[in-house]
Write a protein that binds this DNA or RNA. Structure first.
Lengths: 154, 154
DNA sequence: TATATACCCATTGACGCCCATATATTCCCA
DNA sequence: TGGGAATATATGGGCGTCAATGGGTATATA
């Protein structure tokens, strides 16, 4: 499986370390399994993460923008300076930077939610509530969209 | 990681030395880790920096501008003639020239912002504000552009 | 000689690496 | 197919190394 799926809740130890779920580690390319990138989710109080390959792809695209435009600066500032890389130790653990923990209200436990090509890290309670809210919105408000997804052969 | 990523705030000591963040040093090619180039950012009151190798890329970008335009002269003058090289000592520290510190209002602390293939050095407060402004512009005004970067599978 | 810069050494705290353990999962074989 | 062994995962902790920082001294350059 090369997608981040399912949900896991892991503990943060005294040193601030937390295990990246094993199934998530296996999604990372064997070459780059010792590093991931983390950044603040734009829409929710959570942290998003993925392998470094995704970042390199974004870098390539930004590099194609007009070098002297304001857009170029806005993107590179918002993306590169807000992203942090963090190393994964031999046991599969990593450190969540303090600023990101604050942003997501994470203290002693971290809830990992697979999101396909990336994953989210939530304070467990908030993550649970977000899941319920998402599902409710999907059921109540997006029938047409849902049909589009389910009526076709996929 | 071969990109300048994330943000760091380091102190400037009595002698004017400041540590280039370790992760930035590692972006520089092993051959040329004892020298970087610095120049005034054209669009913001900040200093931009990168490895010496990046000079060729900058030259190429400028060369792609209309040769007979005023911009061409302006850019090549503003950038090339203002570039300074500075040495990195064995502890990974370097000196920011006085003129550049003035330009960026930097006094006792320097905020390093990763920008992919280069980095910026800001007075911490101003850098923080710039980040917020960039993000706001990106969220409010550039939806289509943003989608180009983020909506596709990468 | 005066000022600036490079080199060397020291300190502190953070982080990476190693080892250990408990629980869970998989595997193997009778 | 059941049970026990081997393996993997999540977690805890010791300790060495490195990064950031401070300061003394040598060297250089004018």
């Amino acid at each position: 499986m090369d997608l981040f799926v399912s949900k896991y809740i892991n503990k943060i130890d005294k040193k601030g370390r937390v295990s990246l779920p094993s199934s998530f580690r296996n999604v990372l390319p064997k070459a780059n399994r010792s590093e991931i990138i983390l950044y603040k989710s734009i829409k929710t109080p959570s942290i998003e993460g993925c392998g470094v390959g995704r970042l390199k792809e974004i870098a390539k695209r930004i590099n194609n923008l007009d070098f002297f435009s304001e857009d170029y600066d806005d993107f590179s500032t918002s993306i590169f300076s807000e992203i942090v890389t963090t190393n994964i130790d031999k046991e599969g653990r990593f450190l969540i930077p303090e600023e990101l923990k604050l942003y997501a209200s994470i203290k002693t436990e971290a809830a990992f939610f697979g999101q396909g090509h990336y994953f989210q890290i939530w304070e467990p309670q908030k993550g649970q509530k977000n899941t319920e809210d998402s599902r409710r919105r999907l059921l109540n408000e997006k029938k047409s969209l849902r049909m589009m997804l389910t009526q076709q052969k996929i």
